[in-house]
Nucleic acid binder design. Structure first.
Length: 565
RNA sequence: UGGGGUGUCGCCAAGUGGUAAGGCAGCGGAUUUUGGUUCCGCCAUUCAAAGGUUCGAAUCCUUUCACCCCAGCCA
């Protein structure tokens, strides 16, 4: 670990440093990542995970718990618990033996609630949900006390116990904190602490029929676990007074809640509701569709944990709402893949060429480096022969300005192989180019000559005989517009879906070594981008690769520029 | 028009009274057996706006403006 990898500070670390200086928590630093298991994790969660676990890693003795906030049995499932565990682990974080569930504390929470009733700070309310809403008032009008607000402590106590014992129907009664119905902060207008839910919980089964609300439960969870800094997103800022009120009323250990801005990315959506719609209505291929910003989707797409962690570090942490440009994420991805991905050759849309002066049936095994960024990656042997495929787009009959790929009479280099010159263009009856005749320079073996002649263009290629077929899935942004939520009146964000976000290329020919491609390895298809095996659709004999991301393409940029003039 | 927040380059983001870091994007140029990578240069006289305090203000004060969040028995 070199000292140049020191992470930039942020306002949360400033707070922690100050707390350490004053020994507020005896130099302890203990955070937690508290997902509700009601959906799959996405890149926005990764920001929070990296923040919480990252802080724990960076302070001596720091710890971070993985805690499921499973207080609503109607929405939570084990499937989500499992995927969340897998995703956090995949990112490379470790919670040792500190995997917790809010539901582990239901008994303690119940006892605390009883305490609160006993000191006159909570009461059982018989009002219906509608009535409670009416009594709450509005943003500008104060609320009104419930008629049950001042019932006796004894009565609330026995009613609360009856609630727990299943004596009432859903919605018949709630337990509320007795705070202030006139508070300008709506969260303080006697918030509900417990509701009756006759529903099976994914862990506790039918043991409970009352379940704690977030505001009541969350601070207790933090308190019970000895969390020092409870980091959450901005929308909970208004809840902090409540968080503090409960813990103060109980006189129990009191962590500090700190809020930061959640991550937004352009050209995608992050809300659980929208992701769920895309999945359920089959706009995408499941939660792990490679176009989705879910961690499982990004993993399938070929993202590395390192790229995501680097991204999380680089975007910083603040309190201002912001939308990060997706190109920053892609930059982190390319940066990581460039250093680690093995280079191979694959032709996506083949154009056959015949080297007319190369002997028939002859095969040469040429040496090719696996990664110019990493000498330790070594070299491999690739076959070369008379009949080859190059990329269709690497040949133009009429070559434009600054074109240094193949054209009639033009010489280019075949990567790791020879210089070739195009001598003839073969077309079918419709005028379509179906083959190129070329000659090669036998003195240019390895792609270099002693005469120092300049050959600017270098193409990737495979042999007709040895290459194997493969399917390649090319991806583009899921949405055409930077802000998919900005939609004309009466329309839905799905109108902004990009119809070209997935393009399946079935004509691909890849170098023979890729028959043994590893499901965990990332490859750079030379000049085409980064690719990995699609774990969902690839099979031996029918290889399917996902394009993780393309390479920067300054030729395409040049072309676009000249077109737009 | 209640309360809580936030406004620094196209996008993030440092900066905490001493004269605007960095990254991404963009634009030039060099190197290159990937039009990749790498490298080098350019890219905020100005910090939402207006006043004020000060030798000195993005930082302090005043006023104004814009945007985000809150009226679930969701989290």
């Amino acid at each position: 670990m070199s000292d140049e990898t020191v992470k930039p500070g942020n306002f949360i670390r400033d707070i922690i440093n100050t707390d350490n200086q004053t020994s507020k928590y005896d130099q302890r630093v203990h955070t937690r990542f508290p997902p509700e298991p009601n959906g799959y994790l996405h890149i926005g969660h990764a920001k929070s995970i990296c923040l919480n676990f990252g802080i724990a890693e960076d302070y001596p003795g720091g710890k971070c718990n993985l805690r499921f906030d499973d207080t609503n049995p109607t929405k939570e499932e084990d499937e989500y618990v499992n995927s969340i565990i897998e995703d956090v682990r995949w990112l490379g974080f470790d919670w040792a033996d500190r995997l917790f569930f809010a539901s582990d504390y239901f008994e303690k929470m119940y006892d605390y609630a009883v305490q609160l009733i006993q000191i006159g700070k909570a009461y059982v309310d018989d009002l219906t949900a509608d009535e409670i809403r009416e009594h709450r008032g509005t943003l500008t009008k104060p609320g009104q006390d419930s008629p049950w607000r001042n019932r006796s402590i004894e009565e609330s106590l026995s009613l609360f116990e009856a609630m727990k014992n299943g004596k009432f129907e859903n919605g018949q009664k709630v337990l509320r904190a007795k705070i202030d119905m006139k508070s300008p902060n709506l969260n303080m207008r006697d918030p509900v602490m417990y509701r009756i839910l006759h529903a099976a919980h994914h862990r506790t089964g039918d043991k409970w029929c009352i379940y704690p609300m977030y505001d009541w439960a969350h601070g207790l969870e933090d308190s019970i676990e000895g969390i020092t800094h409870s980091i959450c997103t901005l929308e909970f800022e208004d809840h902090r007074p409540l968080y503090d009120w409960f813990l103060d009323a109980l006189g129990t250990y009191h962590p500090r809640q700190i809020e930061f801005a959640r991550l937004n990315l352009n050209y995608t959506v992050m809300s659980k509701r929208k992701l769920l719609k895309l999945v359920k209505e089959n706009f995408v291929d499941g939660w792990d569709d490679p176009r989705l910003p879910t961690l499982s989707g990004m993993r399938r797409r070929g993202y590395t944990p390192q790229a995501i962690r680097e991204f999380a570090d680089i975007i910083g942490v603040s309190k201002s709402n912001s939308t990060v440009d997706i190109s920053l994420l892609e930059h982190c991805l390319r940066d990581n893949l460039n250093k680690n991905a093995r280079r191979v050759m694959a032709v996506l849309e083949p154009l056959k060429i015949t080297i007319t002066n190369y002997p028939e049936k002859h095969i040469e095994w040429l040496e090719a480096e696996n990664n110019p960024e990493d000498a330790a990656a070594g070299t491999r042997k690739i076959p070369f022969s008379r009949e080859l495929y190059i990329e269709q787009e690497d040949f133009k009959e009429e070559s434009p300005a600054k074109w240094f790929r193949l054209a009639p009479g033009k010489e280019v280099r075949l990567k790791h192989a020879y210089y070739i010159t195009c001598t003839d263009v073969v077309k079918d009856a419709s005028g379509k180019i179906i083959e190129l005749k070329c000659t090669y320079d036998p003195h240019s073996k390895g792609g270099w000559t002693e005469d120092g002649r300049k050959v600017k263009g270098t193409l990737h290629w495979v042999t007709v005989e040895h290459s194997i077929p493969a399917e390649v899935r090319m991806y583009d942004h899921l949405f055409m517009t930077a802000d998919p939520e900005a939609v004309p009146e009466g329309q839905d964000f799905t109108v902004n879906l990009n119809p070209k976000s997935l393009e399946i290329v079935t004509t691909c020919r890849i170098e023979p070594g890729l028959a043994q491609a590893s499901a965990t390895e990332r490859y750079q298809f030379l000049r085409k981008g980064y690719f990995c095996l699609d774990p969902k659709h690839s099979r031996p004999g029918h290889l399917v690769f996902n394009q993780t991301t393309g390479l920067k393409d300054s030729w395409a940029k040049l072309e676009n520029k000249s077109q737009s003039i």
